[in-house]
């Protein structure tokens, strides 16, 4: 990424920044399509088994999912604040906000881990010796739940690594254009947005 210097094949730094931002947005568009497949599967499942889907969703820990939504949204806020701080030239604040985002993202993963552990104990995790479901639709739903939230957790982990790398990068913190931090923040917002759709699709569907 640009640390002030202009790299091949660009002649001007401003044009290079535009290109990097556009590249990131296009990458995020492809990420949206990736999760689109999961949402299509969830939609098909719910259309084919409307009642069973709701019953299965009811078994998820709604309060853990809700808490995690708050945690991840706040983490996203931190990333946005980091971008603003870097633009204002407040490198220290940018680093603090980035570490705040990392901390909250880690809390998200920890809560998710607690949730998975609970589901493992209840025998709801696919492919385990203790697995036992109440019915086929619950099995389908839980499997899709693990694929969807698992793929999301992979993205969260990757995003945390990016956030930490940005926080450790002095050049990125001091960049008044916030290029690296801005792109990392965009990725983090996408991880957030995907969760904002996963949460109603999986958790809120079970609210009666």
């Amino acid at each position: 990424m640009a640390e002030g210097g202009v790299q091949e094949p660009f002649a001007r730094a401003a044009r290079q920044r535009e290109a990097e931002r556009l590249g990131m947005l296009i990458f995020l568009a492809s990420e949206v399509m990736l999760f689109g497949g999961i949402f299509a599967a969830a939609l098909a499942l719910r259309l084919e088994h409307p009642a069973g889907y709701v019953d299965a969703a009811h078994h998820l820990k709604l309060w853990l999912g809700t808490a995690n939504t708050g945690v991840l949204l706040t983490s996203s806020l931190c990333a946005a604040l980091a971008v603003q701080a870097a633009r204002n030239g407040q490198a220290r604040w940018a680093a603090c906000a980035l570490w705040g985002a990392v901390a909250l993202g880690t809390v998200f993963l920890a809560i998710k881990g607690v949730e998975y552990a609970g589901e493992y104990r209840e025998g709801l995790m696919p492919g385990m010796a203790t697995t036992h479901f109440e019915g086929r639709t619950q099995q389908l739903f839980m499997n899709l739940y693990f694929i969807g939230t698992g793929l999301h957790a992979v993205h969260v982990t990757f995003g945390l690594a990016l956030l930490a790398a940005a926080a450790l990068n002095r050049g990125a913190r001091q960049d008044r254009h916030a290029m690296l931090i801005g792109n990392v923040a965009l990725y983090w917002h996408l991880v957030d947005v995907i969760w904002v759709f996963l949460y109603p699709t999986l958790y809120l569907a079970g609210v009666r």
């Binding site: 599967a41 098909a44 499942l45 084919e48 088994h49 639709t137 389908l140 499997n143 694929i147």
Partner: peptide, 11 residues
């Protein structure tokens, strides 16, 4: 996981 498996109700 059964998403595409009719035996589980998948499609």
């Amino acid at each position: 996981i059964g998403v595409f498996d009719p035996r589980l109700g998948g499609d």
